[in-house]
Write a protein that binds this DNA or RNA. Structure first.
Lengths: 234, 234
DNA sequence: TTATTTAAATGTAATATATACACTTCTAGT
DNA sequence: ACTAGAAGTGTATATATTACATTTAAATAA
């Protein structure tokens, strides 16, 4: 007997990862891009991607791609959208599921990065990307803006310890607009999710800025009690 | 020469549609479910689905499934999520992209519905569904709640002309809680998106309730000028 | 030691938005 | 003309958001 589904066609399935990082010094969001080392589109810029294997789920495939590229596991990652246009890949029909990931730039070893042909690219200077990767990036950016408004995912882009100035710079980079310093601090501090540390960041000012740490457990507890994170500010 | 991608595996790819309707009389959200007429899981309840063909995009496949089932085109539909667990379908590995659709119950011809083995099912009485379809429904419900808060998509579930009471009933069904009548009306009317008609709905009360119509053009125009729809009410 | 410089830190008043809440109106049917 | 039942309406209070300018801390230079 034929297999139940044998009359239906099969398709290649890829995953592509939109990987964001935040450059604290330059106060800029960055995107991790790959200089392709294989056909088609050899030498062109693309997102990190790979084909889904028979023995792995979609999520596993995305993790594998991300992990192979960065040497990091346990990153923040989320499925974004699946692109299924017939001719999106000129090589063959490939359906691709895009994932977006947030990583601390400092966590990614530059040696590993270089050896994989990956480069951090400012959002304002994204080169032409292959296929529909630009569409993926644009969708991911929109999603990022919406996410950081109501979920505390921005912290994934910062080191464990960060200053309020850095956090505000991050939000300004994502929102692409200035936000009011006092209102921003008032709002984030009123949520009681940040723990003030006993040391200061002393690189960027004489006075120094207090380090804070995001308390994940507190967030989870508050959430169970109906709390909603919100960092929409003027 | 082998094809570029020939070393990679291919996969079956399905689409599944979560189709919501709103029963005005019963003030209840409903889900369109299929009694399966084929293996595997013959006789069990499932979402409307189908395999993606070689000559159609994912979106096209979802439209085809929806159109075949309902006889309707031009429905509100949106990609929801792609489910890629290896063993989600016991018949074979099938990756499935879920779409959610909103339709006016009144628009669906009962004859067409029945002939396709489809039934409207109250949200409170969803039977066991095959595979991971219940997960899909749950995700779609969450998405629906978030969507109607900030986009005027609820109107897709109502006829062209509807009363404010009906609109409020719809929101109450989606939010699964009561909302304040005066605040609800104040808020929706203050957006200037509804046009009061000259006739009344006279089935449910002696007094009759004015019909309104959603003005799509006005919405688009306001949106261009930075307006944001918002119908979060107490 | 004092003055200067630079970024960090802080509070309040005004405005806008969200909420809580109960009675009146309309009309078909008796 | 009375009744019944759903539609329709407004205001006061509380909460959240916004706008905005000075002081503090500490290193460095005078």
């Amino acid at each position: 007997m034929n297999h139940l589904y044998s009359k239906y066609p099969k398709h290649f399935h890829a995953v592509d990862c939109i990987i964001f990082g935040f450059d604290i010094a330059e106060k800029e969001l960055k995107l991790l891009l790959i200089k392709r080392s294989f056909e088609p589109a050899l030498g062109e810029w693309s997102l990190a991607g790979g084909f889904v294997r028979e023995d792995e789920s979609l999520d596993d495939a995305a993790c594998r791609v991300l992990c192979t590229l960065t040497g990091l596991s346990e990153l923040y990652m989320e499925q974004l959208y699946t692109y299924g246009e017939i001719s999106r890949d000129p090589g063959a029909r490939v359906i691709s599921t895009a994932y977006f990931a947030l990583i601390g730039i400092h966590e990614l070893d530059p040696e590993i990065r270089k050896s994989n042909g990956a480069y951090w690219c400012s959002l304002s200077e994204i080169p032409d990307l292959i296929f529909d990767h630009r569409k993926m990036v644009d969708r991911a950016l929109k999603e990022l803006v919406e996410k950081v408004k109501v979920y505390p995912v921005g912290f994934e882009l910062l080191p464990e310890k960060f200053t309020l100035v850095q956090l505000q710079n991050l939000y300004e980079a994502i929102y692409q607009r200035q936000v009011d310093k006092r209102n921003f601090r008032k709002k984030i501090l009123s949520m009681n999710l940040l723990e003030k540390q006993e040391d200061k960041e002393r690189e960027t000012s004489k006075k120094g800025a207090w380090y804070y740490r995001f308390n994940e457990e507190k967030y989870k507890e508050l959430t169970r009690n109906g709390f909603f994170f919100n960092l929409v500010v003027s």
